[in-house]
């Protein structure tokens, strides 16, 4: 299975930051007024100019068509995100998007589980917000973090009516351990279930292994990226090709891939 989802048409846009919030230490969420970006599909990303040589790809945490706003939630990891974190309300950002292939709408006839780790959680909130109203029952959400203070967006998922399970590496909140435990448990009970996951690459590898044989498992990936439009071939991941392993582009073939497409080393 290959992701055929096509998102909104990408444009160069300028968008004003209308709200800024720090949901956890070292994490910032910016609400941007941009009707173009607000039409994105959950799982797509925006390429943000930050003053360095390259833009920074960041996926959407919230998409509000009626207000014309899109939010991005990111962790401060280097110069680009440090600059972006310093941006205050009223500042206009130089943006390119929405880019990439997002998540497909989940099939309402089957149970749905969202699995997020750390700063991989935000795009799952956009997905849950967009599609929970159309489902027969609310999704199960498994959220993982290193520690309680770094757990993102738990209240937002609960507000949607989702059944939220939390895991932390140090046991400071929820189950001690990783998201794989609760996911494996859920999969055993829901053999036709569909899984959407986003998080660090080792976590996604573990999700892929735990859900092997299952066909509706979708992973949103992160990779160091150049152009964002498929031209430079920088942001590749190893995938199954027709004649053996091939490198595929996270920016345009993904960032959302079917788990069975990918090869985790």
């Amino acid at each position: 299975m290959v992701n055929k989802e096509v998102g909104g048409l990408a444009e160069m846009v300028r968008g004003r930051v209308v709200k800024r919030h720090e949901p956890a230490p070292g994490h910032v969420e910016l609400w941007i007024h941009s009707p173009v970006l607000a039409k994105a599909i959950p799982g797509q990303f925006v390429h943000v100019a930050t003053g360095g040589m390259l833009r920074r790809p960041i996926s959407f945490s919230r998409l509000d068509h009626s207000a014309g706003t899109a939010a991005i939630l990111f962790q401060i990891v280097g110069d680009g995100t440090r600059w972006l974190a310093s941006v205050q309300e009223g500042v206009e950002l130089d943006l390119m998007g929405p880019l990439g292939r997002g998540f497909a709408m989940p099939d309402p006839r089957h149970p749905w589980c969202l699995v997020g780790g750390g700063v991989g959680i935000p795009p799952l909130l956009a997905a849950a917000t967009a599609w929970t109203p159309f489902l027969n029952e609310p999704p199960t959400v498994v959220l993982g973090a290193r520690e309680s203070a770094l757990l993102l967006l738990e209240e937002e998922f609960r507000a949607l009516g989702a059944a939220v399970e939390v895991t932390t590496d140090d046991g400071s909140q929820g189950q001690r351990g990783t998201v794989v435990g609760p996911l494996a448990h859920w999969l055993a009970k829901h053999p036709t279930g569909q899984v959407y996951a986003c998080g660090p690459t080792p976590m996604l590898g573990a999700v892929a292994r735990a859900s092997q044989g299952q066909s509706n498992v979708w992973l949103a990936l992160e990779q160091r990226m150049g152009c964002g439009v498929g031209a430079c071939l920088a942001c590749v991941v190893l995938a199954n090709g027709q004649n053996g392993p091939v490198y595929r582009r996270v920016c345009t073939d993904g960032p959302v891939f079917a788990a069975e497409e990918l090869i985790f080393e």
């Binding site: 360095g52 040589m53 390259l54 160091r224 150049g226 392993p245 490198y247």
Partner: peptide, 12 residues
């Protein structure tokens, strides 16, 4: 040609 393993870009 398959290309090199990632990461493939780094800002300096």
């Amino acid at each position: 040609w398959p290309g090199n393993p990632p990461p493939r870009v780094w800002e300096t």
